[in-house]
Design a binder for these strands. Sequence first.
DNA 1: GCCTATGTAACAATGAATGTTGCATTCGTC
DNA 2: GACGAATGCAACATTCATTGTTACATAGGC
Lengths: 142, 142
Amino acid sequence: MKRNSRLSLALHTLSHMAGEPGRVRTSADIADHAGTNPVVVRRVLGKLREAGLLTSEKGHAGGWQLAKAADSITLADVYLALDERLVAGSGGDAESSHCSVETGLQSRVAEVLDDIEESLVERLRETKITDVHPSSCSYCGS
Amino acid sequence: MKRNSRLSLALHTLSHMAGEPGRVRTSADIADHAGTNPVVVRRVLGKLREAGLLTSEKGHAGGWQLAKAADSITLADVYLALDERLVAGSGGDAESSHCSVETGLQSRVAEVLDDIEESLVERLRETKITDVHPSSCSYCGS
DNA sequence: GCCTATGTAACAATGAATGTTGCATTCGTC
DNA sequence: GACGAATGCAACATTCATTGTTACATAGGC
């Protein structure tokens, strides 16, 4: 995989799980599907577990599973669980600039970008995982 | 500067220019303010010039200037000029996965992210450069 | 001509994300 | 209780986009 694939990986995985909610999947299975590494999968899905979206079981028949109904999970849940800040993260150091405009107003740019970020989350809240799952999915028969 | 600072740099610069539309600024000046390098500034502002947001003059009294009224420039103009794809860029390779869900449906995840990206641009279109410029700006007196 | 500016290419450095290995732990099964 | 299969986690290696830097060509005003 390439870059910033966490969100994509999470969405793919959750989408698959939405198709077969009962099935327990191992990190290795998921990594195969996603063309990546089991450890990477655990890293990403671990965040989703912390956020209460997934559960994981250790041991022999262990693996990953949805913690709640797929239609109760929105993209915002996933996005926030991963600590993504696609827009607002765009600021540089800023440090303590000697520019009077910057220091005096504390760089309103950051403020504006925060607003945009918030709007993005609001928009993400409108889409559920079930909306991502293909409507005509030959794989899960739905 | 740190990471993905292009958008931030562009916004800061345009915001400053909005305060003193007449003034011509050199890459060096701008780089100083932003704590970066003249060449980097030229790279970023060059994109904005291609998009018709700025003009640049070579030679003795050369430099950068707004190409149009600040209140006619939206954040979407800037975002698109820089070819940012904060959301939709999140896909991995995908290559030709052997997963039937992926191949069969061409990964609807990408579709969804494209939609979100579009929403983001729509949201950016609502904010003008003049909205970024501090309302009580001691520097430019406005 | 000279100085100052942009324009651009080529290369170096940085740093975040990803990939990898190794090992501890936990749980079911024999 | 030993074994195998899974997660959990830490430490390290690798990859790669972005940023930073240097160098030089070009253009324009003095």
